[in-house]
Design a protein around this nucleic acid. Structure first.
Length: 365
DNA sequence: TCTGGGGTCCTAGGACCC
DNA sequence: TCTGGGGTCCTAGGACCC
């Protein structure tokens, strides 16, 4: 049933799109390099003949046929698909293309929220009269991205962000899935809980122990028990499983932290190497904060030892700063006081937070 | 399988203040 | 003596997102 626009709005219903670019990094690379057309393509760490460190960022559908997935160790990808074209990520390129797509999509939305580099939520409630018009608009956006960027996107359409997000993942690539208000329960019920936003590997495992496998199982589970086990997230999960999500599409304003980290080619206990890496990370982080006119107060150092044991140590300064010597002194002290000298280190990271825009704070510098 | 690099948010304990 | 209650900030860890 198609409601009249005014009636639709009176009922306080929303129509939300989730736009998700298909295998974005590899799709951009394929567009730029016609010579790899048709090949299995993997963007990620250098595989080094199967000895490489790091993970797969994105693989195209040809590589996925061999079982390659995002987040998989690159050494495993090499074993599954040695014939693939392996490329290092070209972030400046992806960011530029992403920016163009976001500008294109934003003009169709009453409210717009970018989500990562290649996804976005659009609240189109005020732009369409109902579900039929929403479908026309979704097709138009997909067609425009295809025409102007030569890339395919999948769009999920639903009455809230959660349903739209699950829907965009339902048919990929080049998909369009529309889930109307009255179809939400039937749509979500049989899907595995892992499809829900915020249900990751750990939560999935805990739910499995409770005999909760599908979103329907979760919707029927006692919300009080969920709350006692998962806290605020328990209630949130229960509501999501019932297709309820009142969160708004909101423009994100400014970053809350800036960080850089590096994994060594080989684990090392050489303190010269470790402290040099830290200094370099300080310079990278500082450059970025200065470029964005930010001042920081909190400095966080991350240490990951051989075996993946990870610790963070932080210090909040009594003042805002963007001086390299403040950052390096604080970071060096934190690392020096907390580094186990006889253990091999896998990764060093640097982060600054408690950020304030320096535009207004110039007098403090 | 052996785990990158960029982020956000939540929890929980303790310090400190009134 | 041994003790409130509320609030904020800091620190560390962990789950999750792309």
């Amino acid at each position: 049933m198609q409601l009249e626009p005014t009636r639709f709005h009176e009922l306080n219903m929303r129509i939300i799109f989730h736009l998700d670019m298909d295998h974005f990094y590899t799709a951009v690379e394929e567009r730029e390099r016609t010579e790899i057309k048709g090949a299995a393509v993997i963007v990620g760490a250098d595989p080094k003949e199967g000895k490489g460190r790091g993970v797969v960022s994105t693989s195209n559908y040809e590589a996925r046929k061999s079982g390659v997935r995002s987040g998989m160790p690159i050494s495993m990808a090499w074993r599954l698909c040695p014939r693939a074209v392996y490329l290092p990520p070209n972030f400046p390129l992806y960011i530029r293309v992403s920016g163009e797509i976001m500008v294109l999509a934003r003009k169709y939305a009453g409210k717009f929220e970018q989500w990562g580099i290649d996804e976005a939520f659009l609240d189109v409630t005020d732009k369409v009269g109902g579900w039929a018009e929403a479908e026309v608009l979704a097709r138009q956006i997909k067609a425009e991205i295809k025409e102007k960027e030569g890339l395919t996107a999948s769009i999920g359409v639903g009455p809230n962000k959660l349903v739209a997000k699950v829907a965009s993942d339902f048919q990929k690539p080049d998909g369009l899935t529309i889930v109307k208000e009255e179809e939400v329960e039937k749509f979500l019920d049989p899907l595995p809980v892992r499809k829900l936003l915020w249900v990751g590997r750990k939560t999935e495992a805990k739910l499995k122990e409770l005999g909760v496998n599908t979103i329907g199982d979760l919707a029927r589970y006692d919300p009080t028990s969920l709350t006692s086990m998962f806290g605020v997230m328990g209630l949130q999960m229960h509501l999501m499983a019932k297709g309820i999500d009142k969160s708004g599409v909101e423009e994100r304003m400014g970053v809350k932290s800036v960080s850089h980290e590096t994994t060594f080619e080989e684990d090392t206990a050489d303190s010269t190497v470790i402290f040099q890496a830290l200094d370099a990370l300080c310079e990278d982080v500082l450059k970025e904060t200065v470029d964005h006119h930010l001042l920081f107060k909190t400095v966080i150092v991350k240490i990951r030892y051989q075996g993946f044991e990870t610790h963070t140590r932080s210090k909040t300064l009594p003042f805002l700063t963007n001086r390299l010597r403040d950052l390096q002194k604080t970071a060096n002290e934190l690392l020096f006081a907390n580094l186990c000298k006889d253990r091999k280190v896998r990764l060093i990271g640097m982060r600054v937070s408690s950020l304030v825009s320096g535009e207004k704070q110039r007098t403090l510098v």
